[in-house]
Design a binder for these strands. Sequence first.
DNA 1: CATGAATGAGTGTTCATTCAT
DNA 2: AATGAATGAACACTCATTCAT
Lengths: 195, 195, 195, 195
Amino acid sequence: MAAALELFVEKGFAGTRLEDVSARAGVSKGTLYLYFDSKEALFKAVIQEGIVPILEEGAGLVDSFQGCTADLLRTLIGEWWQRIGNTHLGGVPKLMISEAGNFPELATYYHDAVILRGRDLMRRTLQRGIASGEFRSVDVETAIDVIFAPVLMMVIWRYSLGACCGTAHDPGTYLQTHFDLIVSGLFAPERTRPA
Amino acid sequence: MAAALELFVEKGFAGTRLEDVSARAGVSKGTLYLYFDSKEALFKAVIQEGIVPILEEGAGLVDSFQGCTADLLRTLIGEWWQRIGNTHLGGVPKLMISEAGNFPELATYYHDAVILRGRDLMRRTLQRGIASGEFRSVDVETAIDVIFAPVLMMVIWRYSLGACCGTAHDPGTYLQTHFDLIVSGLFAPERTRPA
Amino acid sequence: MAAALELFVEKGFAGTRLEDVSARAGVSKGTLYLYFDSKEALFKAVIQEGIVPILEEGAGLVDSFQGCTADLLRTLIGEWWQRIGNTHLGGVPKLMISEAGNFPELATYYHDAVILRGRDLMRRTLQRGIASGEFRSVDVETAIDVIFAPVLMMVIWRYSLGACCGTAHDPGTYLQTHFDLIVSGLFAPERTRPA
Amino acid sequence: MAAALELFVEKGFAGTRLEDVSARAGVSKGTLYLYFDSKEALFKAVIQEGIVPILEEGAGLVDSFQGCTADLLRTLIGEWWQRIGNTHLGGVPKLMISEAGNFPELATYYHDAVILRGRDLMRRTLQRGIASGEFRSVDVETAIDVIFAPVLMMVIWRYSLGACCGTAHDPGTYLQTHFDLIVSGLFAPERTRPA
DNA sequence: CATGAATGAGTGTTCATTCAT
DNA sequence: AATGAATGAACACTCATTCAT
């Protein structure tokens, strides 16, 4: 599955040959069919089993986190970067964007299992901060957009045009800058804009 | 080329069959080869001839615009929406993201001819506003990112997951909201935050 | 279709490679798909278009035949031998027997369109002879079995074990013998066995 | 081997997957190769070991039978029905017809070991009846054809088109009818058509 | 200019066969 | 003896490309 992920991300679904997947995995072409019914089934497995478990851990983190909400937010983004963004899974958003039209059923699954769940994680985090008075009472849904968009654009760029036309920002700096910007915007006034 | 654009945008490069393109264009499959050497040549032509001319008109607009810079910015975004975003050309960003890995040469061309040129348009606009005192002296490159990102995410979503999982924002409202937000942030303090 | 018939008859459905069919037909593999959606569709077409039209002509013959019924019977069997039995179509009964289990839908079609129609032809012929007093009043359905069975066994043998283990009877003589036997058995006693 | 017989009969040689055979036999796919060198070897074993022993018993029966020849004939057909026709072995004639072209060597073996031996059994029976004056002095080879043909057609039908298009005669009644017809035809005139 | 029949290389999938355990 | 994971050759089917008309 790691081999399939890399190739799907790199070449798209149609551009990936199962022969290459099996070669990269060090098995024969037929062996793939012992574990996946079809190329499409392999594709779905890569998406589903790659990301969903990580999101479930994220849910546990939000539920049990001790500490201020800014730290929770920083931890969430950091974990996402460690476990998804900075691994081959970081190519999945670009992959889903590319293939959604060809796999509507999978796109729906991804929307429900990944996107909605991811938004939910962020929603609960923001509400936690607002409830505790740490954050201003912003419009939560819009804030979710604002937080996710640059992060997503970064990995999308990284796995598409960034590969040819380089000059990408350093991801660490980029993420830190955005985190600061967002947290500044979120912090409740008396704390972010002290006299 | 309109037929090809629609199908490339909808199904990606590999997923598009020239037979379908020719059928939608109302000609025979062989006729395509009178005008384009190959599927790849067709793809490049669609990208190049679709967007570049519009950008060139945009350059003329920025050079000759009479009026305040906020109006220029509003006009630019409005024209983009009228001529690109709200037509089938709106699918091109998603398409380039999908196929950049398979067409590095085209991706480089797109980067230079479209992305850099688009950023340049916006850069000159922002610098015009800053020079005239209308805008605050923001970091221009970051501001370009901030202005483009939500607009791009909207069309990317529209041509990928949005097609299956709906619930898209109304584009008009969305763009207006973002425009207001940006301009508020850009306006020079004495004007946006009057005593 | 002639090439396909020969190979299906010789090797069975699964044993026939479309590449061989196309080679024997003098076209390329892809060309087959211009005219038949799939191997299965080709198989169905071979069965349907090969035999059904001939049966329809047979129906016309029975309706319009002038002369004694024994001559009609002889003509029917002779025509069958000329147009089916002694051509590659003679392999179709063996083919249907082999593949009925794998193509139940086609088997049902064959049963209705060929077998039932063939029996009907024979039924009307026998009833004509009985009505005119030429034939004894035998059990018609059983007589149909008796007339068809040896004829079918001959072509089945010819396209199966007969190919390897030879020693087949001369078909002409075999058919003649059976025809005589059948007619002798059928003729009313006072006419076939005159004092 | 019972599992293989059922599947070969039902789906033909090419249509039978060894995985299904092993599953039906309750062993693993690899285990088959402990006992049979190849799919082809399994096929040959099924044919050879299934029918030949029964024919050998039949030879003993003809040699030692006490009683009139009509009873011997009835017993032979009855035994055939009990031990072959009405078991899965009844599918072997259809199977050999289907696969003779693909297995000429096996077909030759079957011809020599089964068909010739079966004809020999019948030949000796008929000659016994003729010698004793029970039967008319018919042409023996033709009579063998006449006796075997309907019986074979019945099992062939049963394992091919009969499976889809039903309406088969009751096998018991069918066999009885044919037996009566044959014996009536064979009995010397003075005994079958008394005054 | 336009056609569409023909091509054949390429790929997803199947399954008989092998072999380390 | 028995397993079942692994193999890879074989084949149905697709589709970009060509060319005679």
